[in-house]
Design a protein around this nucleic acid. Structure first.
Lengths: 334, 334
DNA sequence: CTGAAAGCGCTAACAC
DNA sequence: GTGTTAGCGCTTTCAG
């Protein structure tokens, strides 16, 4: 008996005392069954080890907690699991899911049934809600900045892990995870082994627009892989004077590679990352980046979910498709 | 009806089709009530923004997922919440809690009742299980290394936020969050405004043992605050030739401050952090640190919890009190 | 002020 | 093969 009025004080204490001795804990299921659930939300994340995701998660958890929601996380980055596995795991336990799924929006929404699913950085339409980023605009900002500071041999380092691939297609080009290589050296419209991410398509599209030569390299989504890829790039194409990188974590690796190649950043070669995670400010030189306000991304997701849950916004409607824009933050590296 | 044998295929499909149309989703409560719960574990974390915690969380989530557990996270670092608030929030939803509580072990265990609570980096005894770190040994490793490389004016930068204070006592000395100052300049046994963390006590104890002069500075647990504090330290005590830092994140700030003061690291002033997070390798110079194997810490927590849950280890027993040791990883900064 | 009883949504065991 | 029923542990309502 917890806080019910009209109970003798002595009885209450006697009962509570006994309960404590017996180690009694009310079943959350029976309680939830009868009281109507606290809402609990699944958060599917590809890799907590990339600082981008905890930064995002932190914001989501904060906002969710304010609303009295519970957040159940699943980091599906281990053991070959996919975003769909994560949703499968979360589904029986939650009322909604927010996640970077890496391409399973439709199937994931199917396992969630009527419960809202919000996917980030993925083609909209499959899920009840989606949050996307305007990569065309981002690519414009970054490529134009490099161009305007007289970079004429720009390279783009793309990620090629499965987690963030927009189309779900892994190109069958010469680039492998272990052996990074320059996969395209153009101008050309569609290299057969083209970019594998939506970011990649936006950036290479813009690069193509410059008319100057440019390169595309891919690597797995880690700093180490990026470092190796950048080293290879610099060896094969020493004239490279600007590198745009898939994300800030990989950019950290690139910074190291450029330094190791004996080049100065940004004088000899500029580097621009993407994400805007705090890590960038600690690097030497400090990383210029296409920054997202991670707290805003979290807020967008939580507020969209709130709308969906309340019925204020219709699943799949235009109001459920948000697009956020990057901001070019110029620090030292470009 | 989901996967029960002895049902006509047509019926099953008809039912499932209808269910889909109606948007039916089985209540997780009713289901849990009758089936016996999947175990779900709360994870209380002071600040997902400090890379240490996601690294730890990542490991816990991975191991928990392997066991089919669900992880409910609460980042209590926002809005003035404490570790106890986090446990209060999590308790009705989980079967156990693992957390960096920052000093509420006993009260938190009380709200959990018989359900196991595992606290990290906190005086053991209050909770069913605890994981601690051998700071005496860590301090020995680091201080002795500095000493052996002829550092004779060592400083220790301690954290003074509430989250990780062992004793729960915030000293009333001259040091404030906004205005970092050298709080003690000794040798002395017990400066009235002494270290506020158990790490601080271990380090200053060892420093005292050297007989040489040393300094104690405190700052809030962020890179920015640490940077300001280190700048102040270097101004007031320019002879400082070695700085030991509460954690790696703060050490990143210190590295910047030392650089800005026109000093070379490690030639003029060595810097050693604590934690061993990946961030350290990206810094320039690469950070030497007292490293924990974060995956091991996660494993220790999860396996201890498994033992507690299975009844294989008794709550509060010696077997439920683990102590892990740091390893000194020498990179470039010391 | 306290005990008894109904019912939350589901599954499992049972008769039809 | 298919419909019916008991009961999971709790809260709430209603008699005592």
């Amino acid at each position: 008996m917890n806080g019910m009025p009209g109970i003798k004080e002595s009885t209450r204490e006697r009962v509570q005392e006994l309960a404590r001795e017996l180690g009694y804990t009310p079943s959350r299921f029976a309680r939830g069954l009868v009281q109507g659930s606290r809402t609990s939300v699944g958060l599917a994340i590809p890799d907590l080890t990339n600082p981008y995701f905890p930064a995002f998660a932190s914001s989501v958890v904060e906002l969710a907690t304010q609303r009295g929601w519970h957040i159940v996380v699943d980091d599906y980055g281990h053991g070959g699991r996919t975003g769909l596995d994560a949703v499968d795991h979360l589904a029986p336990q939650v009322d909604a899911v927010i996640g970077y799924l890496g391409g399973y929006a439709e199937q994931a929404q199917a396992v969630m049934g009527r419960r809202p699913l919000i996917v980030l950085d993925e083609t909209p339409g499959g899920a009840a809600g989606s949050i996307n980023f305007d990569y065309a605009e981002a690519a414009k900002l970054a490529v134009d900045h490099l161009w305007n500071t007289n970079r004429r041999n720009i390279a783009y380092l793309d990620a090629c892990s499965s987690s963030l691939i927009g189309s779900g297609q892994v190109p069958t080009g010469p680039s492998k995870f272990g052996a990074p290589e320059v996969v395209a050296q153009v101008p050309s419209t569609e290299a057969e082994a083209g970019p594998c991410t939506v970011r990649g398509r936006a950036v290479t599209g813009r690069l193509y627009g410059t008319g100057a030569p440019w390169a595309l390299v891919t690597a797995a989504e880690t700093a180490e892989a990026a470092r190796a890829a950048a080293a290879a790039l610099l060896r094969e194409r020493p004239e490279t004077d600007g590198i745009l990188v898939f994300n800030d974590l990989m950019a950290a690796g690139v910074l190291k590679a450029v330094h190791e190649a004996g080049l100065r950043v940004p004088e000899d070669c500029a580097v621009i990352g993407m994400d805007g995670i705090p890590l960038g400010e600690f690097l030497t030189p400090e990383l210029s980046t296409l920054a997202l306000d991670l707290r805003e991304v979290g807020r967008a997701a939580v507020e969209l979910l709130e709308g969906l849950l309340a019925g204020a916004v219709a699943p799949g409607s235009d109001a459920a498709r948000l697009t956020l824009v990057h901001q070019l933050i110029l620090r030292e590296s470009a």
